[in-house]
Each structure stands twice: as C-alpha cells, then as structure tokens.
C-alpha cells in the first residue's frame, strides 16, 4: 500500500491575523474562518497542482461556532436586527466554506465539533478510498471571552493545519492517535529550524 504522509504543517494565533494578506473579504470573516484560512495559507501549497475535486478539507472546531453564535445573538437588539452576514458564520463548517472558496477546493468536506483526534484518520481514509488525492486538515480553537464565560473555558484563538497526501513527506501516517496540535507544532518548529 502506498504511503500517506504529512507534507506541510502550520500553526497560527490571533496575533498573526493582523499581518494576513488574504484579500478584501478576509476582514469580514468570523474569527474561526480567519484563523483557519490563514493556517491553510501558511501551508504554502500550490493547490493548482492537484486535479479539480481531488483535495478534501477535514476540519474540527473545538467549540463549534459558539463564539460567533454569541456575537450574532448579542446583535439581535441592534438596528435592523441580527446581522445576516454573521448568521452565515453561525455554522461550525463556515470556515470550511471559506477555505474552499479561497483556494477553489471542490473535493469532499468533513467538519467535526470537538477535538482534532479524528482529523488524520479521516483524511487518510479519504485518500485510501480514492475519494481524494490530498486533504487539508485544520483544528481551530476560537473561544472569545464572552463565549468562554458561557462554557467555562479560557479564551483561545489558534489554528493548526497540515496537508496530508499520498507519498513521501515529513511524517508518514501509520497510526492516528497522535495529538494533532503537538504534531503540527513539532513539524512547524522543525521546519523553522531548517
């Protein structure tokens, strides 16, 4: 069986968003979508090298879209009522849509709420089944102060991403019960050191 490997990894935090250059729409995206989109951009992948429809997106959001849900619902008493723009981001998978639009990725999508433990397994499975040639995996944590109060969680804003594809890479995927964040950080650091 062909090898399946991670060929790129990235880690971004809220502070990185200020210097992001990802088009005019970027500033209008919610926090989760901004973090996820920037993390994928930081992989520095030329997606044009893949055939149309052959790159999938496998995404997990630690708190779903709750941070944006709180923003949307807090705006219900404003002039004109709640924001239609924000409503579109009250889905945990909104970030997946934004990544697909920005990078023109028309392959299959998966979006989980919770930790990132399924990401590598599901990406490898999509590739092994022949549904994709590669997958972008992203784990996003977007918990604002308002959101954190409700779910008793400390605020956090970060995204971790990898590209998984068939063939040789930085890390071969043989077992999947690895800490996704730690793996991304490790690969990112080793790349920086090189």
């Amino acid at each position: 069986m062909d090898k399946i490997s991670i060929t790129a990894a990235s880690v971004v935090a809220e502070a990185d968003l200020k210097s992001a250059r990802l088009g005019q729409r970027f500033g209008r995206l919610d926090l989760s979508s901004q973090l996820a989109l920037l993390a994928v951009a930081e992989l520095k992948i030329n997606f044009a090298e893949f055939a149309n429809g052959r790159v999938g997106i496998v995404f997990a959001a630690s708190a779903g879209s709750l941070a944006t849900d709180v923003n949307f619902w807090n705006g219900r008493h404003g002039v004109g009522g709640p924001s239609p723009t924000l409503f579109a981001y009250t889905l945990p998978s909104a970030a997946v849509g934004e990544i697909a639009i920005h990078f023109k990725l028309t392959g299959p999508d998966l979006c989980f709420v919770g930790d990132g433990k399924n990401l590598l397994r599901e990406a490898a499975d999509l590739i092994r089944r022949g549904e994709t040639d590669a997958c972008v995996c992203i784990f996003c944590e977007a918990v604002t102060a308002d959101c954190g109060k409700i779910i008793s969680t400390a605020p956090v804003a970060a995204a971790h991403a990898v590209l998984v594809r068939r063939g040789e890479g930085i890390v071969e995927l043989r077992e999947f019960d690895r800490d996704f964040k730690a793996l991304c950080a490790l690969i990112s650091q080793s790349k920086s050191a090189v």
Partner: peptide, 11 residues
C-alpha cells in the same frame, strides 16, 4: 456516498 464543494459562495 459522494461529497463535493461548490467553492463558489458561502450562502
């Protein structure tokens, strides 16, 4: 099962 994305518009 088959899945895809339009990669076109959010809503």
């Amino acid at each position: 099962f088959g899945g895809s994305n339009d990669a076109n518009h959010l809503t």
